[in-house]
Design a protein around this nucleic acid. Sequence first.
DNA 1: GCTATCGGCGACCTTTTCAGTCGGAGTATC
DNA 2: GATACTCCGACTGAAAAGGTCGCCGATAGC
Lengths: 144, 144
Amino acid sequence: MLRFTKRADYGLMAVHYIALNQEYGAVSSKRIAEEFQIPAELLAKILQRLAKKGLIMSQNGPKGGYALADQASEITVGQVVRALEGPINIVNCLETHQCPQMSRCNLRRPVLKIQAGITQMLDTMTLAELLGDDVPMTELVTNS
Amino acid sequence: MLRFTKRADYGLMAVHYIALNQEYGAVSSKRIAEEFQIPAELLAKILQRLAKKGLIMSQNGPKGGYALADQASEITVGQVVRALEGPINIVNCLETHQCPQMSRCNLRRPVLKIQAGITQMLDTMTLAELLGDDVPMTELVTNS
DNA sequence: GCTATCGGCGACCTTTTCAGTCGGAGTATC
DNA sequence: GATACTCCGACTGAAAAGGTCGCCGATAGC
């Protein structure tokens, strides 16, 4: 229901954590998993995927772990999300499957508009922007 | 992976179709299902839900069916989506479940920002806007 | 008043996708 | 070269979505 998977959640948390702590050396998957209390193997898989996509660099062996492949200001939230969840498609009729009423459907334009808006939001938000602010802001939670 | 369910898809298609055709009388669930080749029972359930939420009006019996409860310009895409999928929450740590690292999480602010952006887009888009344009625009499909 | 047609409602089954788990291979350190 | 640490890829279980079935109540036409 228009929701990120935990893959994206965990991935963003992890990348964020790496960005914060990599100056003291590579950050291991295990450490991040403990920090956020998420299953180590699951997180490992996520990080592997990010490494495969070239967003983070992996280093094997003791003292190994992950580090950002680029500056935090050069990596966008959209890149991380797409690396983990594939291309952003709000509806499935526009990708592989074809809606039988493709020709009559007037929903494509608005849907694409929404999609483009979301994509742009994600792509203009870099990791660097996530690092600064640590205010609680619980009051922003608006379950409309 | 950040995707609408078919409930929302079908719901929007149906409401859109009702808006187009209701001037000649109520539009039956069966007719819409045939038009878009979607399971009649499933669509029925969706329309019932929309009726329950007061977005469309139902009329029983022969010649019965559904009609918009309000002007097309007064019904927003966001209303339809929320009626069918509940409140929009991109991540689940912000609603019922609590992330064990709530205090350290710096992701809330950007997530809420994205969420607010999406919500606003959906809420400012009315049904009336969907009715006018029927251009193909297949070239807009950008699987980035 | 009988009948056909429609919406309304709840329970159920199937399929897909997500979340989490397991064993294996590689690499650096000692 | 043995060991401990890491990354890596296939597998299994759980949850949600999608779809189905059957029955009831209401309304309009005959």
